[in-house]
Every structure is written in C-alpha cells, then in structure tokens.
Design a protein around this nucleic acid. Structure first.
Length: 473
RNA sequence: CGGAGCGUGGCGCAGUUGGCUAGCGCGCACGGUUUGGGACCGUGAGGCCGCGGGUUCAAGUCCCGCCGCUCCGACCA
C-alpha cells in the first residue's frame, strides 16, 4: 500500500487517495458516478440511522416516490425548471419506442411528490403532511468529485405541507436545527448555520437556509439545506385545502435534505496525514483489535481475545485476524480507515489480563485491565467524540477572520482562506463581483448574526450585517 | 464545454531517434523464516500497452478521431 500524500501539500490528492485507499468508494465505469464500497456504505448507514431517528421524532414519516418524473411536471414551476434544466437526465426511449413525453430522472422530487400531495390534501385536517424519502437523485454535473459532487447521489429529502406560513417557517427552522444538531452530535462538526443569499437560493424557494462546513483546506462544503417554498409549488400543483373558515387555501410548503456529501465533509474536516478520523458515533468499526503473535500459544491468544470481544458487547468491534501481515502494517491500515480506538493484544496483555488501547485522535496509549475494559472503552469513545468536536471547533475559530476592508478581504481569501466575516450590502451585483474577483461567495447570514451597521466590503454602501464568505466546493 | 496533464498486469511507474521475447517496484499465489509501528528469502501467476482508424517491412512509440481520469475555469447537494 502506498502512503497517502500529505494533507497540507496537495489536498485534493490527499482526499482522493484517502477515499480510494480506505475503500470508502471507487470510480465506476460510468462517467461521473461512483461506487460506494462496504466501508463507505457502512458510514452512510450510520448517518441514515442517526438522522432517520431524528426525522421520525419530529413526526415525519418515510415514503417513496418514483425515480421518473414527467418532464411537464418540472416545467410547471418556472424558477424550478430554470434552475434544474441544465443538469437533467432525460429518458426519451422505453421498451424500444420513443416516449410521447420524455421522463426526467429526478434531480429532486418536489414536483412528483406535490402532484400526489394535491391528491391527498383536501382539508385542514389533512395538514400538516410531513413526508421524507431516502432516495437517489441524478444531476448531470460537468465536473465531479468523489462524494462531494457526483452525477448520482444519495440523500434524504423531507417535504412538508402546512396550513399557514408561520407553521411552515417553523418547520424550516426545525429541520435546519436538526441538521445542525446532527452534525454536532454525530459527526462532531459545528457548521455555520444561516440563510443563503438570493443568488444561492434553491430554485423555487422563498428562502433557503443551509449548514456550511469549513474543511481542512479552508473551503466550505454545503452540508444540508432547508427551504421555505412558500406557496410557489402549491399554486402550480393546485395543492388546496378547505380551512376551518370554509375558505379554499393553498398550502405552505418546505423541503429539506442531507446527502452523501456529508461523508465528504466528514473526511475533509477531520482527516489528517495518516488518513481518516471517524467520530465513534458513525464509525462502522469503533474498536479494532490487533492480535500480536508472540510466545503465547495462538489458542490462548484467541481465547483471551474472544473474552475481550464478549465483554465489549454493544460496541462495534472488529478483530483483525488477517494472516501474513505484521502488526505495524495493520496499525497503519486501521489508522487510514479512521477507527477511533485500537486494542493491542499480545504476550504482555495475555499474561497480565489487560489490553493496550491506542487512540486515533492523539495516539495516546494506555493499558487497561480487561475486567474494567467495557466501562473504559465506553468512556474513551465518548471522550473521543468530544475531543474531535473540540478540536474541530478550535480549527473553525482559528480559521474565522473578521474582515473590514476590501484589501483585507482579498488578502485573507488568497492567503488564509477560511470563513470570512464581512459586511455586505445585500446587492447581487456586489456578491457577483466579489465572486469574480476572489472565487469566494456568501455562505450564509448566520442565524446568530446581530445587527451591526457597517460598510459593504465591495461597494462601501451601508450594510447591516456581517455575512460569512468563503470559497466553496 | 474551455485550458493543462495523464491513460502500459490490481496499484505506482520506466520504456531512447519506431526494431527483436514489454520491463521495474509494490501487491497477489505457493513454501519457509518472522510478527509490540508499513518483515525477509525462494518459486510463480498475471498484459487486446484506454478504444477505433491510418502511416510503415515493422507501432507501446508517429498521425487522426473518440472515450475516460486528475487539476484549473463556467455549473452545482
């Protein structure tokens, strides 16, 4: 196995190698599409399990809608089709015949779902309707990148319909904060959370909110979004209900999603020169046991390890019994794959009834009596999760820059990257100019932003808030 | 789609002004010695040299076309 490139030297090479060598994913024979391998898939399963629980806890039910959408459905919402038409995959033939109307392979499911919503919603008693689906979607991307931008990707998309705008807006915030909490509690990441600018808004939404994750090379990954769709879709899809007052009204809608891109963000945010570092909450393997053959009879070693595994019930443990590989090789291999804790078991441990534990995050080593092992491992895993979050927060602090002038802005983007907090007047022209000049875009107006009158870094006109700027993936 | 680079056993690469049986390292298989931070020795398997066409006595090498990958732009979860 080749060593991976240093993260600081060539970030994209580092990233590609980590993904390939840790066997998270591989390139596929189909351009722009990737194969998610078992180890990568296992991470996605952990993400799904955690998030699905949160989604259900909010009273949202899972369902499944078709992969194909009649082209005319997308055309109905003007902004929506305009936003998506450049990246649609169209099915023009089926069963050997040309179709009367082409089918779109869904790039997102608003239109197909809302056609059904129109059928299902009659009364205020049918509201709110809150559905989620775990699905794949296709967008014809020109330039792809493992996990972060592939032509086909996996996600969940939640779609809710409400009787009034306020309730819908509350749902938008609820979903947004759910994502924030999920990133914090499961992936040990603290995203920037806030509203997107008009330019960056979802095609067909009144407002778009996003969680934005700063990664190791100082760029941002848009990591989940939540949209207030207002009545844009309900009016085009005729989703009407009769309210308590007898009036026929259009529903207010939201949609929100998190994709396999989260895995890319996870890798990029926590990784180091040795490879991945996975938060215990989503690590497919939380504890790996590396047997170290020595003078101890193999039978005895196996027996001891079996008892260790038994004591670790409830923890995702794997024993690396691969033959012909020396321990040092295995250490490196599991470090590359980001397993939080490594247990070493050899002569010493078997003799003393103890195991050596090594942490992936700081290589700290300690020896623990096997009787106290379960408790210790539990606390080490919890501690690991916290340390990782703490370390990430520190990284974000170090890479967040308060900037007050254009010169400072430009220098910061060029030399330090990271999150730039700067005043912006809100004009799309200024935003576009800033992007052209520096490749940095507005990421979000943080929810926590306080009114702080100042001058727009670009045009010097009055500005009320500091926005988060940065380069994005 | 524009710019740059690259496609040669699974991976990383070498292959000269076209020339003989296409090589090296890693990995893989088998045997042995090893095993506390990427082991060593021996034997061996594995190639439509990205695809298609052309030039030539002769093409991995030259020419044309196409496809794919990486990086940089435009686009984006």
């Amino acid at each position: 196995m080749k060593k991976i490139a240093s993260l600081g030297k060539d970030f994209s090479q580092w990233y590609n190698r980590v993904v390939l060598q840790a066997q998270l994913a591989d390139y596929s024979p189909v351009r722009g599409c990737m194969v998610i391998r078992p180890y990568g898939w296992a991470i996605w399963e952990q993400i799904q399990a955690g998030l699905d629980q949160m989604i259900k806890a909010a009273g949202v039910k899972n369902a499944y809608f078709p992969l194909f959408i009649p082209y005319s459905f997308l055309e109905k919402e003007k902004a929506h089709v305009k936003g998506f038409s450049p990246e649609l995959a169209l099915v023009t033939h089926g069963g050997g015949k040309e179709l009367k109307e082409p089918l779109v392979v869904r790039p997102t499911s608003e239109t197909i779902m809302y056609r059904m919503y129109a059928k299902w919603i009659q009364s205020y008693r049918d509201l709110p309707l809150k559905l989620n689906q775990w699905a794949n979607v296709v967008r014809w991307e020109l330039r792809t990148y493992l996990f972060l931008r592939t032509m086909e990707f996996l996600w969940q998309e939640g779609h809710t319909a409400h009787a009034n705008h306020q309730e819908a807006q509350e749902e938008v915030q609820r979903a947004l904060l759910m994502y924030r909490d999920f990133y914090r509690d499961y992936l040990a990441l603290e995203p920037f959370v806030g509203e997107k600018s008009e330019r960056e808004r979802f095609a067909g939404a009144l407002q778009t909110f996003s969680t934005e994750i700063l990664v190791r090379d100082g760029k941002f990954v848009q990591a989940a979004t939540s949209h207030d769709l207002g009545q844009n879709f309900s009016k085009t899809f005729e989703i009407q209900f009769q309210d308590q007052d007898g009036q026929l009204k259009y529903v207010w809608q939201t949609s929100w999603g998190l994709s396999t891109r989260a895995i890319g963000a996870l890798i990029m945010a926590h990784g180091d020169d040795r490879g991945l570092i996975l938060p215990p909450k989503v690590a497919p393997v939380q504890v790996v046991i590396v047997p170290i053959p020595g003078k101890t009879k193999e039978e005895k070693l196996r027996e001891f390890i079996a008892s260790v595994v038994r004591s670790l019930r409830g923890i995702r443990v794997e024993v690396d019994w691969r033959e012909g590989l020396r321990p040092g090789y295995k250490f490196n291999d599991w470090e590359l794959r980001g397993v939080p804790l490594r247990l070493e078991v050899g002569d010493r441990e078997t003799r003393e009834g103890a195991v050596t534990i090594v942490s992936r995050i700081d290589s700290e080593k300690l020896i623990v009596n096997s009787e106290k092992l379960k408790l210790k491992v539990d606390s080490l895993l919890a501690e690991f999760q916290n340390k990782l979050l703490g370390r990430y927060r520190q990284f974000v602090r170090k890479n967040t820059h308060l900037v007050n002038s254009w010169q400072e802005f430009r220098e910061t983007v060029e030399e330090r990257r990271g999150a730039i907090l700067a005043h912006w007047c809100g004009s799309s022209d200024c935003e576009a100019a800033i992007k052209t000049e520096t490749k940095a875009t507005t990421r979000v107006l943080p929810l926590t932003a306080k009114k702080e009158p100042g001058k727009c870094v670009w045009c010097n006109q009055a500005a009320q808030y500091r926005w988060v700027f940065g380069r994005g993936y």
